[in-house]
């Protein structure tokens, strides 16, 4: 009798365990199927969004929201904007010009530099340099910096430096500044004199800036 009772008990436990297993299995299967379906839909939507973001106009560094007062660049000023490339072939930066007194300055040149920040000590940091003709922004409202593609730029960090010569004549250039929900590192302004303390901006402020790549960026999230 005790053996029979033990067998019955064991059978009851087994039945219960199997019943729970069936229920849990059904729930997990259902949620797994739903999860995969939603994931596939989300991946498609993100890929579509990335395709829109990585347009021929360049990949946005940070989303911009509402415009703020333009950032004037006095003679002797240095602007340092951290960048990070998401793909190989980083070959240019495009950023929106500001307008003082309703007009974009039509003449003059400022110096630009692309500096790498991830290099070991002693390695070359300045990757590219050149001058920017401010008059070129008169029609488009954008400044355009181009340099030879950097083959292994994916995931690397850089700084875009803009140097306004001390002897620059008025009207001074300016950059368009916006609020940004992304909270990315903001530009740092030094100058016009070495004694002037650097100007920083609260998180949530961004230049309207796009990164240019030599090849179309990979759209996969």
């Amino acid at each position: 009798m005790p053996a029979t009772r033990a067998r019955r008990r064991l059978r009851w436990l087994a039945c219960r365990a199997i019943a729970w297993g069936i229920c849990l299995g059904a729930l997990l299967s259902a949620v797994g199927i739903a999860f995969r379906g939603i994931e596939a839909h989300a991946r498609g939507a993100l890929a579509e969004w990335r395709a829109r973001r990585a347009s021929p106009d360049g990949e946005l560094l940070a989303m911009v929201r509402t415009p703020l007062p333009d950032l004037p660049l006095a003679p002797g000023t240095v602007v340092e904007q951290p960048l990070w490339a998401s793909h190989d072939g980083f070959c240019g930066v495009r950023f929106e010009a500001g307008a003082l007194a309703g007009a974009v300055p039509t003449s003059g040149e400022i110096i630009w530099r692309i500096v790498a920040t991830d290099v070991p000590a002693g390695a070359k940091r300045r990757l590219a340099t050149g001058t920017l003709d401010l008059g070129a922004a008169r029609d488009t409202g954008w400044f355009d910096v181009r340099f030879p593609p950097l083959p292994t730029s994916a995931g690397a960090r850089y700084v875009l430096k803009l140097l306004v010569p001390a002897e620059f004549a008025a009207p001074t250039p300016s950059l368009a500044l916006y609020t940004s929900p992304e909270g990315r590192p903001t530009p740092v302004i030094t100058g016009p004199t070495p004694e002037t303390p650097p100007t920083t901006f609260p998180l949530g402020t961004a230049l309207h800036l796009r990164l240019i790549y030599a090849a179309p960026p990979d759209q996969s999230p």
Binding site: L46, W49, S86, A154, G155, A156, P181, E182, D218, S220
Partner: peptide, 16 residues
């Protein structure tokens, strides 16, 4: 859902 599009960036940073 589209803020801070990291993609493969973390793996690239890890490799570096």
């Amino acid at each position: 859902q589209t803020l801070r599009p990291e993609g493969r960036l973390f793996a690239l940073r890890a490799a570096r």
